[in-house]
């Protein structure tokens, strides 16, 4: 770590790596998923859109959208935390325009979601926590909320197969 590295270079490196990770997935772009970064802490944001509605009467966000959003949050959090060391040391520099520069994504083995509240027609936020990350397998827990951080609308646990090499 270079204490005197210019701040804009630090931020630029981290933000462009994160952008590369997210923009490489068409479905994530289509849903409109964004990531808010504070140091290495990520918060996924899903801005509300009419196409996310699953129950037009209530109205409520589609449960499948919540599931997809949480699965993406888990994958990005896991990839991000796995590549952090290599990114900071300069061993890799992911670039959205150079597909081969992107790290290979973990593969989902299983995904279990609990629905706790019906999703309001508002933005959704989520954070993932890598509970265990081994050489081959990883376990990630994810939480989603809307207006109140303490009132989760859903939580999920997922297992992943880590990319080889």
């Amino acid at each position: 770590m270079d204490r005197n590295e210019p701040l804009d270079r630090v931020k630029n490196r981290r933000d462009s790596a994160l952008r590369a990770l997210v923009s490489g997935v068409p479905y994530m772009t289509w849903l409109g998923v964004q990531f808010d970064r504070r140091g290495d802490e990520l918060t996924a944001v899903l801005p509300f859109d009419q196409k996310l509605i699953g129950n037009p009467v209530l109205p409520a966000i589609h449960g499948g959208v919540t599931a997809a959003f949480l699965e993406m949050t888990a994958i990005v959090e896991l990839s991000w935390s796995t590549m952090w060391e290599d990114l900071e040391s300069g061993r890799i520099s992911p670039d959205a325009d150079v597909p081969d520069s992107l790290p290979r994504l973990p593969k989902t083995i299983d995904f279990t979601i609990d629905y706790l509240l019906s999703g309001l027609p508002r933005d959704v936020y989520a954070r993932g926590r890598v509970v265990r990350s081994g050489r081959r397998y990883a376990s990630v827990h994810v939480e989603a909320w809307q207006d109140n951080r303490s009132k989760l609308i859903a939580q999920a646990t997922a297992h992943f197969l880590m990319p080889r090499g």
Partner: peptide, 20 residues
């Protein structure tokens, strides 16, 4: 095309399978 999760393999995203 907008449902793809891994552009290198052109495979539908797992999240789409969840929704279905």
């Amino acid at each position: 095309p907008h449902l793809v999760g891994d552009p290198r393999r052109n495979v539908i995203h797992g999240g789409v399978v969840s929704a279905l």
